[in-house]
Design a protein around this nucleic acid. Structure first.
Length: 263
DNA sequence: CGTGGCTCCTGGCGGC
DNA sequence: TGCCGCCAGGAGCCAC
């Protein structure tokens, strides 16, 4: 579920609630979500530490510890952080729980357990190992053009490919291509340089608007395709019924009138 | 390079 | 109501 705007809002949420508190205990209810670490080793590195600050790259969230290790969170499809300042009981889906000294806690809620937790001593190395492309909010136009202009696969799968650009998933790639008027199967190499620049601007705008809405706890504007992303959903511009097509195994929604295949 | 299929999980929904 | 299959905003791996 969470793509760049959601993960960025998770980052702000954790910054607001969970920094500089001594972690008394880590409770791991779902050890298979730990990636390169044993439970005991994680406890050893995390307990009695504090989260000093947070960074984000694509859909990964990095929490810096006093001992200079980083706890790395990836939220998969259903993961999200939740903070409790009171003594509210943890719930069934709270897979990994950080109990702070002041009795508050931060939990990694994740019904489907696709979320992943890593520990690394070096954030840059981690990003290199994952072969993550530049972050979609930080990339500049020239680099964007360089990366995309020769891409021969579908525009949709290029935008979703974390090795090319990091942070965009199934939902926001649909939104970006919708505003660009580009069919999700159209490859980038067939688009003009102007069109690619336009997609760049749209990408930034969509991600920023989505982040704003996340932070305000509001849905996206009705003129976006995401709110209409369901069976029988209609294009907010042309009122045409949206169509779906499978690309890289994921369902894409698009408007057959506003997004023509350029072949 | 690029795509499609399968896998990890669990719950919600539509159809019969 | 009960059950079943399909679908879901991620991503790694493998075969072609």
């Amino acid at each position: 579920m969470p793509e760049l705007p959601e993960v960025e809002s998770f980052k702000r949420y954790i910054e607001k609630t969970s920094l500089h508190k001594k972690i008394e205990r880590v409770e791991i209810n779902s050890p298979q979500q730990l990636q390169n670490i044993e439970v005991g080793y994680l406890k050893e590195k995390i307990e009695k530490q504090t989260f000093q600050y947070a960074e984000r790259s694509g859909k990964y969230l990095f929490l810096h510890l006093d001992n200079n290790f980083w706890l790395v969170l990836h939220f998969g499809m259903t993961g999200r952080p939740k903070y409790f300042s009171d003594n509210k009981e943890l719930a069934y889906y709270d897979r990994i729980n950080f109990h702070f000294e002041d009795r508050s806690k931060l939990t990694f809620e994740d019904p489907r357990k696709f979320g992943k937790i890593y520990l690394t001593s070096n954030m840059e190395d981690f990003i290199k190992e994952k072969r993550l492309g530049p972050d979609a909010l930080h990339i500049g136009l020239e680099e964007f053009k360089l990366l995309f202009s020769k891409k021969r696969g579908s525009s949709k799968s290029a935008l979703m490919n974390q090795h090319v650009i990091a942070g965009i998933g199934n939902i926001y790639s649909d939104e970006i291509l919708y505003h660009a008027g580009v069919h999700p199967k159209t490859p980038f190499y067939m688009l003009s340089e102007n069109k690619i620049s336009e997609i760049f601007n749209i990408m930034k705008n969509v991600l920023n608007v989505a982040l704003d809405m996340q932070l305000q706890n509001k849905g996206l504007p009705n003129s976006y395709i995401i709110p209409h992303r369901k069976k029988k959903g209609k294009c907010p511009n042309s009122d045409t019924e949206l169509k779906t097509v499978k690309i890289s195994g994921r369902t894409s929604y698009y408007c057959p009138d506003c997004q023509k295949e350029v072949f």
